Structures are given as structure tokens and as C-alpha cells.
Simulated scan of single mutants.
Amino acid sequence: MTGLQEIELPPGERGRIRVFSLSMSEDEARHLELGRALGKYPDDPSRVEVFPVSNLDGLGLAGYLVEGCGVPEAQVAPDRARLDALGGHVLLLFSRAYAEGGVTLEPEPALTLIGTYDEDRPAARPGPLIETESAKPFTGKPRLSPRDNRAASRRAGAIFFGLVMLLLLVVVILVL
């Protein structure tokens, strides 16, 4: 089965959102089978959103992408009118829906790709380097293995038993 459009999700892709318009009835959209609709069932279906655009009254789809999904305003601006003019249901497909990427999707004809947007992800800044002795790896007392722990317990028990027996012997000698 070859769909009208194939969509490549490259290996390791992160932080992209694909917006699809759904050309189907409300009932079909509510009961959408993701595997059939996208051509491959997502590894994490919680990374796919299907909802009626009317749920975004006052915010609009463009506003939801910016405010709710972290897409930069400058990226949405050229498509704002088209996104906000959409009616019916939409499907948002986040990159992480397919854990490792490297997937070719063949969406059914009822799904129309409207656009692909990147989430605004601030560059990770390394924190300050901590140079105290306690921050170094493997500081402190090393833990004993279970076998060494049992051996130490047996030795302690044998010493305690020996002391109790010696004390009893001394008491018996003194009493006699």
C-alpha cells in the first residue's frame, strides 16, 4: 500500500511537530486508528494528539503551537492564517512518537500534512563544576560484597559466642 505522500522521520529526530488536517467525520476522527492512519503504529501513542480545532477557541492552532508546544513565533508566523483557518480535527505528530526515528510513514489520503515545526529548545548550559572532595566519584567508605558481609557477621558472631562461653566458664569455676 503506497499512500499519496511518504514522510521520512530520520533516525534520532527530536523536537519536531508535524501538523495534519483530518478530512473525515467527527466520529472517524475520535476513533482514529493511528497505525492505519499513519501507515505505522507509533511506539509512544501519547506523543500523538488528535483533537477538534474548535477546542482551541480564543487561542487558535497557531497559538497552541507557540504557547502549548514551544514552537517559536517566528516559525509559525508565515503559516498563522492557514493554521487558524483550519476546521474539523487535526493530528499533531511529535518526533518522539517513534522512539528511534528512521521511519517512513505512509499516511492515508484523509491526512494532509499542513506543516512541520521545530520546538524551541534552549541549548543546554553546563552547570558550574564542583571541585569539593565529596563531589569526586568513589569517595567515602566502599561497600562490602554480600559474601564479605556474611563472613564479617560470622566472625563477629563467633567472637561473641566465645566471650559468652568464657564468661560462663569463669562463673562456673567461681561457684564451685
Rank of each mutant, 00 (worst) to 15 (best):
S23Q: 11
N55T: 14
S46P: 00
L83N: 04
N55M: 05
L111P: 02
A77E: 13
E6G: 08
L105E: 14
P10T: 09
S95I: 04
G88Y: 08
E13Y: 00
S21E: 01
P107K: 06
S134V: 14
R147G: 09
A37D: 06
S153W: 05
T2H: 08
I114F: 02
N55F: 14
E131N: 05
G162D: 12
A124C: 01
A77I: 05
G102W: 07
D79K: 12
G70R: 02
P78D: 02
K136R: 15
P128Q: 06
L144N: 00
G127S: 03
G115V: 01
D84W: 07
L167M: 05
P107S: 08
L59E: 10
I7P: 02
L61F: 09
E73I: 10
L93K: 06
S21N: 09
R82T: 11
A151Q: 14
R30E: 10
Y41V: 09
R125A: 12
K136C: 07
F161W: 10
Q5R: 15
L4R: 05
S153F: 00
S134D: 14
L4T: 07
V172Y: 10
G162A: 15
K40R: 15
R143V: 11
G88I: 01
A77D: 00
G162L: 12
F161P: 00
E133Q: 07
L144Q: 09
H89Y: 15
L113D: 03
A158Y: 11
L113P: 01
G58I: 04
V48S: 05
I173L: 14
S134L: 11
R30G: 09
M24I: 07
L56K: 03
L174I: 04
G63K: 04
L93Q: 03
K40M: 13
A135P: 01
V50K: 03
D148T: 04
R14S: 08
E131K: 00
S145E: 02
P122F: 01
E26N: 11
D27R: 14
L32C: 12
R154T: 02
P11D: 01
G70N: 03
L9Q: 08
F94G: 03
L65S: 06
S25I: 01
L144P: 00
A74H: 09
I173A: 11
L86H: 09
G39F: 07
D57A: 15
P78L: 09
T112M: 09
G35K: 05
I173D: 15
T132I: 07
G68C: 10
